[in-house]
Design a protein around this nucleic acid. Structure first.
Lengths: 149, 149
DNA sequence: GGGTGTTATCTTAGTACTAAGATGCACTGC
DNA sequence: GCAGTGCATCTTAGTACTAAGATAACACCC
């Protein structure tokens, strides 16, 4: 089998695995009234603390307009707030509000459990192998991407 | 590290890898005027031959309304046609037209090369490992999914 | 310190879907 | 052969984005 055939096959199984797992995640998140993109922002802020909007964009791989849209919605829900950046007046931080923080503390354990079930097809050892392979793959693919806007 | 922590990490790297690779694919497909979903249908018909719409739905993990929408668009472009099913008058086949067949023959090699580049972060050996892990993961995740509509 | 290019975010218009339900057809047991 | 149940596809209305460009602020060279 040529490397190209392997690449095609890999893309197919990668897509299927992601779409299926993502759907589990989506169904779980929808119970709390958030879209997948909204939750991705909540999650990254929950784990990394306040982040510049551009940093958020790079983390969740969404368009710049998408970040604005998603943060607007989360701000309207009172879960996230924008804060000024001291050193660069163009830039803004996104940060969880108290409400957002407590919301995540409440729902995140359930969400993690739901993901664990979705990924239960692999043993812990296999998960470790998959993580290391996918990390390598993802990093290379992100680097090869043309810049956004 | 607990299995749950591994699951969360795996989900993150899976998402990033898929989103990045998928974006390569999307940029390539857009050059030919198709959306990602449209191309997914073309591809599955190109490789498997005529398929019932329901089979297409299961292959590409899209909603039933989505299949109708996508096949409508491809039919309008003259790339795909619907055919009656002899044994079940509710069911319809989707099949590539001559034009669709030739279109795929023309663009598929380029697309495959573009994917090979997007996935070049992994060696052939690593690709094989990743395929087998992701296949196992995907199958389990699809099976655990609630039925669509 | 003014011009030139770059970066960060936001706005606007459009697209690719999804969800829910409608419709029409097929099978089953009676 | 008819009622009831379940599929296979399509329709309608709505949503979550993306693409392209606008705006404002910064940075660097002269």
């Amino acid at each position: 089998m040529t490397d190209q055939q392997l690449a095609l096959k890999l893309y197919v199984v990668l897509s299927r695995a992601y779409l299926a797992v993502n759907r589990h995640s989506q169904l779980d998140i929808a119970r709390h009234g958030l879209s997948h993109g909204e939750f991705a922002i909540m999650e990254v802020l929950f784990h990394k603390g306040p982040l510049l909007l551009g940093e958020v964009q790079r983390k969740i791989l969404v368009s710049s307009g998408g970040v604005t849209y998603l943060v607007d919605r989360l701000e309207a829900d009172g879960l996230v707030e924008r804060r000024a950046c001291e050193t660069d007046r163009r830039a803004r931080y996104a940060a969880l509000t108290r409400k957002g923080e407590q919301f995540m503390k409440k729902i995140f354990p359930d969400h993690a459990a739901s993901l664990e079930r979705a990924l239960a097809g692999l043993t812990s050892t296999e998960k470790k192998q998959a993580i290391s392979l996918l990390r390598k793959l993802g990093t290379a693919a992100v680097d090869a991407l043309p810049d956004r806007e």
